[in-house]
């Protein structure tokens, strides 16, 4: 199959890659652009490890063709930190120990970021529903819920750039 040119904007950087049109967005990000923070944990769009933010929406990058993301702005876990300065949600994950093995963490962070942008004063139930699409086998989720909650409550506001 002939490869075609695809322009993607990931973490505010433009990339030109040549791909087979069947390439999934997660494959473009991991295998072509070589940002491996985004993970894959299933073949059925079930686990959320591949979650990235596309035009401010959390999306599972294994459920989208890379070509469908042309013209969008994509944010991955690597794009959260700016010049060594961690984003509030990253700090909160550290403070709450909201990760263990870390394999779900990138996806979890991206779901959290999109959720926090959308929902200003979330209830605990809303936070839980907000990360429902992400499986974490290690933490039991409560530390992640606490981390999201503490960002929502403004614990890290002074950090916002």
């Amino acid at each position: 199959m002939e490869k075609q040119l695809l322009r993607l904007n990931v973490n505010d950087q433009n990339y030109e890659i040549y791909i087979n049109p069947k390439t999934l967005l997660v494959e473009a990000i991991r295998d072509h652009i070589e940002l491996t923070g985004t993970k894959r944990g299933c073949d059925t769009v079930s686990c959320g490890a591949c979650t990235v933010v596309v035009d401010d929406m959390a999306v599972k990058a294994c459920s989208v063709l890379a070509v469908q993301a042309e013209g969008t702005k994509i944010l991955t876990s690597e794009g959260l930190e700016v010049n060594g300065k961690l984003a509030p949600i990253q700090k909160a994950f550290l403070d709450e120990g909201a990760f263990q093995c870390g394999f779900c963490t990138s996806g979890m962070l991206m779901s959290s970021v999109a959720f926090l942008n959308e929902t200003k004063k979330p209830t605990e139930k809303e936070i839980r529903d907000g990360i429902e699409g992400n499986i974490c086998r290690c933490t039991g989720y409560n530390s992640i819920v606490r981390a999201i909650d503490s960002v929502a409550k403004g614990k890290y506001t002074e950090d916002k750039v």
């Binding site: 991955t76 876990s77 959260l80 930190e81 990253q90 870390g102 963490t105």
Partner: peptide, 10 residues
């Protein structure tokens, strides 16, 4: 290992 895990570097 936290910083590596929350920045996608791990």
């Amino acid at each position: 290992d936290g910083w590596a895990k929350v920045t996608g570097r791990a």
